[in-house]
Amino acid sequence: MSDLAAEILIAVGLAFDLFGCIGLVRLPDVYNRVQAATKCVTLGTCLILAGTAVYGITGAMSIKAALCAVFLLLTSPVAAHAIARGAYKSGVRLWEGSVIDRYGEEVHPAGPPAERIEPAAQTEHTVAAGREPHE
């Protein structure tokens, strides 16, 4: 009985993981990819951990799985926020189909502080040049 519940939880979690990874490949720009991937993969992995906890309900496995799930729920949105903020500050533009950009209008009216890098035109050379400290 508990095996069946664990299998159902793990199967649903796997499905959400795969949706997140498909979103990571299909969506058009960094911010949309962060959204899809973070939401889906966080909940999917937490469901897999919950399935593990249900499966090993008697041992130390379930306690550690619960600790890991809490840790993922706490830190994964923080990582997404940090990446999105870093991407905006390093000059990645929004997708052309975006309808509004209040952050750019109100916080960075003169554009991001770093040099603007066109996503399509970026090559290995510009990546290497971007690492130099800008004065």
Partner: peptide, 26 residues
Amino acid sequence: YCVQANLDVAYRVLHPDMPIRPGIVH
């Protein structure tokens, strides 16, 4: 809301036209 968010994302990702209208709001 978290589960609702995931179903929402799954719908947007799997839909062939990708019905998205992104932007940054305040």
